[in-house]
Amino acid sequence: MLILHCLISGIATMYVRYKQVHALNPEENLIIKFNKAGLVLGILSCLGLSLVANFQKSTLFVAHVCGAVLAFSMGSLYMFVQTILSYQMQPKIHSKQVFWVRLLLVIWCGVSALSMMTCSSILYSSDFGADIVQKLHWNPEDKGYVLHMVTTAAEWSMSFSFFGFFLTYIRDFQKITLRVEANLHGLTLYDTAPCPVTNERTPLLSRDF
C-alpha cells in the first residue's frame, strides 16, 4: 500500500505540474511540447520505481535492474525537461532563483548518475565472484567493496536530488487550487442525447497547496 501510495502521489504531482505549466503557457508551442514530454517521462519514471519495489534484486535481478534504469534515467530526463521549462518561463513566470536551484539539482543528479553507472559497470563486468549479483551483505575485505559502496552512495545521492527537485514545486503549488466537479449530461446514466440538467457544483476535492 505504501508503494502504491507513493506511485499515485508521484503521478498526481507530475500531472498537476503539467496542468499548471499548460495553463500558464497556453499558446507557447515549444513549452507545450516540452511539457507533454515531461509528463510522459515522469510517468515512465514512476513505472520504473514500481518495478524496483516489486521485483527485488535477490529474486528477479533483470526486472529490478530494468526498473532502476527506467526510474533513474526517465527521472533524470524529467528533471532536465522541467529545468528547461523553468528557463523558458523566467523571468516573466518563473523567478531566476528557482531556475538556478533546479539547474544545480540537475547537475547534482547528473554527477551522481555518472558515478553510479561507472562504478556499477566496473563492478559487474569484472571478476569479483560468481555470486555478486545475489550478494546482499558486504564486508570491507570483500573484493569490489569500495565500488559497491560508491555505487550505493551514488544511488542514494540521485534519490535525494529527486526529492530536492520536487521540493522546489512547493512555491509553485502554493499558487493553485485543485477542485473536481461532476457535470451531469443527462437525467439517467442511459440517456443517449444531452438534456438540460442542473450540474452538481459541490467540490469533490478542494485543497490549497
Score class of each variant (00 low, 15 high):
3 I>P: 08
3 I>Q: 13
4 L>E: 09
4 L>S: 09
5 H>N: 14
5 H>K: 07
7 L>D: 08
8 I>K: 11
8 I>C: 01
10 G>L: 07
12 A>D: 07
12 A>F: 15
14 M>D: 15
16 V>R: 04
20 Q>N: 08
20 Q>Y: 14
20 Q>F: 07
21 V>Y: 00
21 V>K: 00
29 N>Q: 10
31 I>F: 00
32 I>A: 10
32 I>Y: 15
34 F>H: 14
38 G>N: 08
39 L>E: 03
41 L>K: 02
41 L>M: 13
42 G>E: 06
42 G>S: 01
42 G>K: 01
44 L>K: 01
45 S>A: 06
46 C>Y: 00
47 L>Y: 12
48 G>M: 05
50 S>D: 03
51 L>A: 08
53 A>Q: 11
53 A>Y: 09
54 N>E: 05
54 N>H: 07
56 Q>L: 14
58 S>R: 05
59 T>Q: 11
59 T>R: 11
62 V>N: 15
63 A>Q: 08
63 A>S: 15
67 G>D: 02
68 A>M: 05
69 V>F: 14
70 L>Q: 06
72 F>S: 11
82 Q>I: 12
83 T>L: 01
84 I>K: 10
84 I>T: 05
86 S>T: 00
88 Q>V: 06
89 M>L: 03
91 P>I: 03
92 K>G: 07
96 K>H: 02
98 V>K: 13
100 W>F: 10
100 W>L: 13
105 L>T: 09
106 V>L: 09
106 V>Y: 12
107 I>W: 11
109 C>M: 11
113 A>M: 06
114 L>F: 08
120 S>R: 07
120 S>C: 08
121 S>E: 05
125 S>V: 10
125 S>P: 04
126 S>M: 10
128 F>K: 05
129 G>H: 03
130 A>E: 11
130 A>I: 10
131 D>H: 13
132 I>V: 13
133 V>P: 08
134 Q>G: 12
134 Q>H: 14
135 K>C: 00
136 L>R: 04
136 L>Q: 02
137 H>I: 06
140 P>R: 02
141 E>W: 06
142 D>E: 00
142 D>L: 01
144 G>I: 08
145 Y>R: 07
145 Y>H: 12
147 L>T: 09
150 V>S: 01
151 T>D: 07
152 T>H: 04
153 A>D: 06
153 A>I: 02
155 E>V: 02
155 E>Y: 12
156 W>S: 02
156 W>T: 04
160 F>S: 01
161 S>E: 07
164 G>F: 06
165 F>S: 08
166 F>M: 06
167 L>A: 13
168 T>W: 03
169 Y>C: 13
170 I>S: 09
175 K>S: 05
181 E>T: 08
181 E>N: 12
182 A>L: 15
183 N>V: 15
185 H>W: 07
186 G>P: 02
189 L>E: 13
190 Y>L: 15
191 D>A: 04
191 D>Q: 01
200 E>C: 10
203 P>M: 02
204 L>A: 04
204 L>K: 06
205 L>F: 14
207 R>D: 05
208 D>C: 09
209 F>H: 13
